[in-house]
Amino acid sequence: MEDIVKKFQNKFRKVREEMKQWDELQSCLISQFRNASHIVERLQVLQNSNNYGVLKCVGGMRDALLEKQIESFRNILVSMKKTLEKFHCIVLSLDKIHRDSRQQVKGGSYNLSVKQLQQQVGIKPSLIYCLDSLMFIHEIYNSEYMLKSSVISALSEMALNPSASDLSALQQLLVDQPNLHTEEGMFELSVW
């Protein structure tokens, strides 16, 4: 029993590391999103040849500028997809942590009884509660990952049809991370 409790503590330590990495990726993704949406916002201004002032004397300026901006937009999209890929890795790792723990407790060498799983020692939560928490953490992060993917694909379509209000709504979604209720998710972690 002592042994398995230690193992769970390690699992939660790993989960905490993954979350830390998630936060780093989150700020990276937001700055990428800001850069991309700056470009999208500018595109309409750049398309209007009346906005070129003295640059009108430089032949082909408008087309060259638009081409350059779209190229940078594409580059940012590519790096955002790479960031998303890393988010996905975290989700997969959280899933693995949960499945491994379940395997150890239920099917593994310990062969614990239901009573042992529900047993609560002192203020420490029961093993079954820990398992549920691991599953819950994986689920909320998975939903958040899905949300981020759809926000990014919405952004890539928006280059053709830009709207400033939609852009800021999308950015708010990315910042808020509505699927992650940190207070609930963190409760178990603080106990261990």
Binding site: V45, N51, Y52, G53, L55, C57, M61, L65, Q69
Partner: peptide, 25 residues
């Protein structure tokens, strides 16, 4: 491209969109 510097007129009060185009350029 070509250039047509003869038409060059500097504007001391360009509108904000034009300024944005300059900065983007």
């Amino acid at each position: 491209g070509k250039s047509d510097i003869g038409a060059l007129r500097f504007d001391n009060q360009p509108n904000p969109e034009v300024l944005q185009v300059y900065l983007t350029t």
